[in-house]
């Protein structure tokens, strides 16, 4: 609904695991997938919502007075009640709250504003050989904005990484690829039925796009989130390797063991965490998988 207004939900400086060396990672909002293990739930919906952090609220009532829609009230327990029917997410409460108890799940921005953020850590990118990473959400969901950012970074000679699910029209992927130095490309599993079950989408397009990127000579690093009992079987990995085997341009594979750092975010957003029962594979098993990948001739690592 806000497709024409660029929307991001975070800019992370000194990001160390989102591509080569020290990076600034820009998280674009909105994602077509709904992975069970998603640790950035605030990045899934393309729109901006406002959440109340009740433990921060001091019940000063300033937001109640400021809200132009009269959508807010201090509830009987001394915490904020928001009437979702009235709230237009205008952000007035976010701006005014002294306790930072209202938080927007994203912000509208512009290419110029994002470039200013990226430029701040230029000296660190230069010294380390890092750069910028566009992540999400799914950055390809805002292709015009992303392309403009990538082209501007290109003009300024900033190394560009795009961290993607690959779930986008192939033409879009290839258009973005022309302005991208490196893809971090998520591959969850090869079985399409299970892929649908765990991520909400079929993987045929994802696999086709990966193949298209590789055939067009783009540099791609594959990332596999590892979730115990879901995709960490040796067969799961071997199936992925079999698919990658004939593709040129794969610079390596990262295994990303599941972590539950997203749990607190779900709580904050007032959402149930669908992945509450998930666990990471144990370290020895992950190392075994790493060995299998390396034996297949790929450069590989655990973590980014």
């Amino acid at each position: 609904m806000h497709h024409n207004i660029p929307t991001i939900f975070a800019v992370k400086r000194y990001a160390l695991h989102d591509g080569p060396q020290i990076r600034t990672t820009v998280f674009l909002k909105g994602c077509p997938l709904s992975c069970l293990w998603c640790h950035n739930p605030e990045g899934v919906s393309p729109g901006i919502e406002i959440v109340a952090l009740k433990e921060r609220c001091i019940a000063c009532g300033e937001c109640v007075i400021a809200c132009p829609q009269q959508a807010l009230a201090i509830g009987p327990a001394g915490s904020i009640d928001r009437d979702p029917a009235r709230c237009t997410a205008c952000g007035r409460c976010v701006e005014i709250c002294p306790a930072l108890a209202h938080e927007a799940t994203g912000r509208r921005t512009s290419v110029a504003a994002v470039m200013m953020e990226i430029e701040k850590d230029r000296p660190f990118h230069d010294t380390s050989g890092g750069g910028v990473t566009f992540s999400g959400g799914e950055p390809l969901l805002q292709p015009d904005f992303l392309l403009e950012l990538l082209q501007e970074c290109g003009r300024r000679q900033i190394h560009r990484t795009v961290d993607t699910t690959g779930f986008a029209p192939t033409a879009t992927v290839l258009e973005i690829a022309a302005a991208t130095d490196l893809f971090l490309y998520d591959l969850k599993m090869m079985d399409s039925a299970r892929h649908r079950r765990y991520t909400g989408v079929d993987n045929a397009l994802i696999l086709a796009n990966l193949a298209a990127l590789c055939r067009a000579d783009h540099r791609v690093r594959v990332r596999i989130p590892l979730i115990a009992g879901i995709n960490d079987g040796e067969d799961d990995i071997r199936a992925i390797l079999a698919f990658l085997h004939d593709l040129p341009g794969i610079t390596g594979i990262d295994l990303l063991p599941y972590h539950d750092s997203g749990r607190a975010k779900y709580r904050k957003l007032g959402m149930n965490y669908p992945g509450a029962a998930l666990t990471a594979p144990d370290r020895n098993h992950t190392t075994t998988l790493l060995g299998i990948i390396r034996d297949a001739g790929f450069q590989a690592s655990i973590g980014g």
């Binding site: 000194y14 060396q21 020290i22 660190f124 010294t127 380390s128 050989g129």
Partner: peptide, 10 residues
Amino acid sequence: LDNLGALIRT
């Protein structure tokens, strides 16, 4: 560690 080095150098 490399990145820490780069942070320091910067």
